[in-house]
Computed example of a mutant assay.
Amino acid sequence: MEAFALETLESVGSLRAEWDDLLARCPGSPLFRTPEWVLTWYEVLADRFRPLVLAFRESGRLIGLLPLARRRDGRRIEFAGEALASGDHLGLVARAEELDRLWDAAAGLLEPELRRARVLRLAMLDRGPEVEAARRAADRRGWTVVASAGIEAPVARLPSDPEDLLRRLRKKRRADVRRRRRDLEQREGAAFSTITGAEDVGTGLEILFALHAARWRSRGSEGTLGDPVKRRFLGTFCRSAAERGWLRLHVCRARGRPIGALLAFHRDGTASYLQSGWDPEFRRYGVGELLVLFGMEEAVREGLRWFDFLRGDEPYKARWSTETRTLVTLEAACRLPGRAELRLRALASGLRRRLRARLAGDRRAEGGR
């Protein structure tokens, strides 16, 4: 097996056709490991990160790809596509049976890098075989490794009939959702539509950005889409996604104007729900939840198998999901400064957890009295 590193955007881009071919041989590979997501991220964040892509060939054929990035300050190596863009389900692009030997080969390439950078941060890995393979590779080299407790990422296995989505809810909740959708359509003249074409991306994203900001302003916050760099990333990626047929920007209009928008991507049997926003004036209708239902119904009609809510344990996700995946962050170091940083961070994290537990216990005791 040949293992090598690519360190420029041009050299990484030259692998695009092989990258697509590799993804086709790895069913279920997430949206966030595609060249569209990763190359857009490298391009938009070029002033903060430098590419470091580890590639693996066997008999001349690409069998694995690990998209990483060096921070410009040189202190850390991490997954491409996570910082700012909030990509989930990150990791190696490879077949499951190749994970152990490819992570071991990756660790061999990364060891010299970690003599210069303090920490390797692998965020938003799916708990399971890949986390175990990465950890074994680090342990074999005697690296210090710290793992996070994990973040929930709810998903829904989609039925074959859109009507079955509502049947999953409790009877009272099901009746409430139906009533709110009927009232929104009859009283406000609401209608749902979907933007899929690259020519409409600019208009659609302006709607999303405005409604996202309005929703969060009503809660005294700015939301997550105010950053102009993040907006540029989404604009560029959405155009690429539209060209591939992945874009689904669902919009709800009422009283002659947009009142809600939900951004999702349909790829390889999965709908990935990235962002949404709605007009607080229509809060009583629960426009956000109605958009989620519409997005799930459209995914069912297209024959998709999964609706991925991505990271976060918000209550509405629990209502619609059928299972939960866990996203884990591994951090590793092989030199004293990095090892010390990780150990201090782990100690501080443990102290915070114990303090929160003690405060929660004190509050329960006070409530009991």
Rank of each mutant, 00 (worst) to 15 (best):
G361Q: 14
H266V: 15
F4T: 10
L54R: 03
R76D: 11
L293R: 07
P30M: 07
F49D: 02
V131W: 06
G223D: 06
V300Q: 13
R358T: 15
W41T: 04
G60R: 13
W41M: 09
E302L: 07
L234R: 00
E297F: 09
R301T: 14
V155D: 05
D88S: 08
R255M: 13
R232S: 01
V93A: 12
A85T: 03
G226H: 07
S276N: 11
R141C: 10
E297R: 12
E222Q: 04
H212Q: 02
R33Q: 14
D126W: 00
D73H: 02
R232W: 03
A242M: 00
G197D: 15
D279H: 13
W103P: 11
G226L: 01
R239V: 09
R179Q: 15
E366N: 01
K230D: 02
I63M: 10
A213L: 04
F49G: 12
V251M: 04
L336A: 11
H250K: 01
V155C: 05
A175Q: 12
W19K: 05
K230F: 05
V229G: 00
R219W: 02
H266S: 10
L158D: 13
G245H: 03
L344S: 09
L165V: 14
G81E: 12
A332Y: 09
V38F: 05
H89F: 09
V12Q: 00
A271R: 08
E97Y: 01
A261E: 13
R257Q: 14
A107G: 12
H89R: 11
E199K: 04
P337I: 10
R115D: 11
D104V: 06
R75I: 07
P258L: 10
L102G: 03
G361W: 02
L344M: 06
A138Q: 13
L347M: 04
G150A: 12
Y285Q: 15
E18L: 04
R178K: 11
S221N: 08
M1Y: 06
G226K: 00
S14L: 08
L66E: 08
G150I: 09
R305A: 14
S29K: 06
G81K: 14
T8Y: 04
E302Q: 05
R70M: 06
V12E: 00
W41Q: 11
G197V: 04
R244E: 13
L125N: 12
G81H: 14
A107T: 00
R248Q: 03
R141M: 10
R16I: 08
H266K: 14
H212K: 11
G13N: 01
A24F: 05
A360V: 08
A46W: 12
R70T: 12
M124V: 07
D164V: 10
H212G: 13
R363L: 15
A134R: 09
A191E: 04
C26N: 10
R118G: 15
V328M: 05
T196N: 00
R364Q: 08
L90A: 07
F294H: 15
A198C: 06
L336T: 06
M124H: 12
R257I: 04
L184V: 10
E113I: 01
V177I: 13
L211N: 07
P159E: 15
M296E: 13
R101D: 09
A134M: 09
A3K: 02
A242L: 01
E185Q: 09
L165A: 04
P228M: 01
E243K: 11
